[in-house]
Amino acid sequence: MVAVGGLTSLAAFPLIGRLSDRSTSRLGRRRPFLLAAAVLIAAGSVLTLSCIVVSTGSVAAMVATSAIVPDQFEPARRGTPSSMVGPGSPIGAVLGLFLAQLVQEHLAAMILLPAGVAVVALLLLTFVLKDRRLSPQERPAFVLRESLGTFWVNPRRYPSFGLAWASRLFIFFGVAAVNAYQAFYLIDVQHVDQATVGTTIFLATQNFVVLFAAAAIAAVVSALFILPIRGVR
């Protein structure tokens, strides 16, 4: 199911991204996908095919939230808000693990509690977001061949993009391997008690605190010094 969820995310990211950019809903471009994300995450937490449903909901949430900064700010003013949004992932990971280990005696609660917090946060963002409605005249044309081309960019023609893509690929391969199999490794190899494995994982991931601190410092330095030099604030 972990692999199926990963493949679902791989296909859903470009598809939902294009649908979001082209949405002419009265709610705006991002609100419908934030609402869909909340519904899918809530539903996926209790359904048999939860991995696929939650993965799709998570993609919808990430696509919509990642587009908020370019939607709300001009290119020259995106550096600072991006530096504030960036640490959200490590903070969310630590918070989710903390909540899960609080109720580790009950497997369902370990899933539903973090999911519930995510759903509430998405709904709050949905209602406070000032999301501009896209008019039909502004809507980009949807070309199937162009959409399929999203899955391939020639690294020889665009070497900088290729290097950035490859670096993220290998980083998230490592992250995915740890996230997917850490509990099994601790139980089967390190013989950690299943009743306390949640706390052990939370303690083992305290390196996220170091990661967050490093990311926050790098983001602030970039926003204050590096990005203004290149004309981005």
Results as ranks from 00 to 15, higher is better:
residue 12 A to E: 01
residue 123 L to Q: 00
residue 131 D to T: 12
residue 20 S to D: 03
residue 219 A to K: 04
residue 127 F to E: 09
residue 132 R to I: 05
residue 2 V to F: 11
residue 124 L to I: 15
residue 60 A to V: 07
residue 52 I to E: 05
residue 122 L to S: 07
residue 174 G to L: 08
residue 233 R to A: 08
residue 57 G to H: 05
residue 35 L to T: 02
residue 221 V to N: 12
residue 55 S to M: 11
residue 142 F to R: 09
residue 190 Q to L: 14
residue 212 F to G: 01
residue 36 A to L: 15
residue 104 Q to M: 13
residue 58 S to R: 00
residue 193 D to E: 05
residue 76 A to W: 12
residue 104 Q to D: 02
residue 47 L to S: 03
residue 220 V to T: 11
residue 70 P to G: 05
residue 5 G to H: 06
residue 107 L to V: 15
residue 118 A to V: 12
residue 224 L to Q: 06
residue 83 S to N: 12
residue 3 A to R: 04
residue 26 R to S: 10
residue 61 A to W: 07
residue 117 V to S: 04
residue 213 A to Y: 05
residue 139 R to S: 11
residue 230 R to G: 08
residue 131 D to R: 11
residue 155 P to H: 08
residue 108 A to L: 12
residue 179 N to V: 14
residue 108 A to S: 14
residue 119 V to M: 04
residue 217 I to C: 09
residue 85 V to L: 10
residue 18 R to H: 10
residue 162 G to V: 15
residue 136 P to G: 05
residue 20 S to G: 09
residue 44 G to N: 10
residue 2 V to K: 07
residue 81 P to R: 08
residue 142 F to M: 15
residue 122 L to N: 10
residue 114 P to Q: 05
residue 4 V to M: 08
residue 23 S to T: 00
residue 133 R to I: 14
residue 196 T to S: 13
residue 127 F to H: 08
residue 171 I to D: 06
residue 185 Y to I: 15
residue 134 L to N: 01
residue 45 S to G: 14
residue 211 L to Q: 10
residue 148 L to Q: 04
residue 53 V to S: 02
residue 225 F to R: 15
residue 231 G to H: 04
residue 75 P to I: 15
residue 193 D to H: 04
residue 86 G to K: 06
residue 75 P to F: 11
residue 107 L to N: 10
residue 172 F to M: 04
residue 70 P to V: 13
residue 74 E to K: 15
residue 178 V to H: 01
residue 68 I to S: 09
residue 4 V to D: 08
residue 169 L to P: 02
residue 81 P to C: 10
residue 173 F to Q: 07
residue 182 Q to I: 13
residue 152 W to Y: 15
residue 128 V to P: 05
residue 46 V to N: 06
residue 48 T to V: 13
residue 213 A to I: 15
residue 27 L to V: 02
residue 194 Q to C: 02
residue 132 R to D: 12
residue 120 V to I: 13
residue 17 G to E: 05
residue 206 Q to H: 05
residue 136 P to S: 05
residue 13 F to W: 10
residue 109 A to K: 13
residue 41 I to T: 12
residue 118 A to Y: 06
residue 105 E to P: 03
residue 55 S to Y: 09
residue 57 G to I: 09
residue 18 R to G: 10
residue 131 D to A: 06
residue 127 F to I: 12
residue 178 V to T: 02
residue 226 I to V: 03
residue 41 I to V: 15
residue 170 F to T: 14
residue 8 T to A: 10
residue 88 G to Y: 01
residue 149 G to L: 00
residue 93 A to V: 03
residue 104 Q to K: 14
residue 227 L to A: 12
residue 10 L to M: 13
residue 6 G to Y: 01
residue 118 A to S: 11
residue 228 P to M: 09
residue 2 V to R: 07
residue 228 P to F: 08
residue 194 Q to L: 02
residue 105 E to A: 14
residue 89 S to L: 11
residue 211 L to V: 13
residue 23 S to H: 00
residue 83 S to Y: 07
residue 35 L to Q: 02
residue 216 A to K: 13
residue 152 W to P: 05
residue 112 L to F: 09
residue 134 L to Q: 01
residue 4 V to E: 00
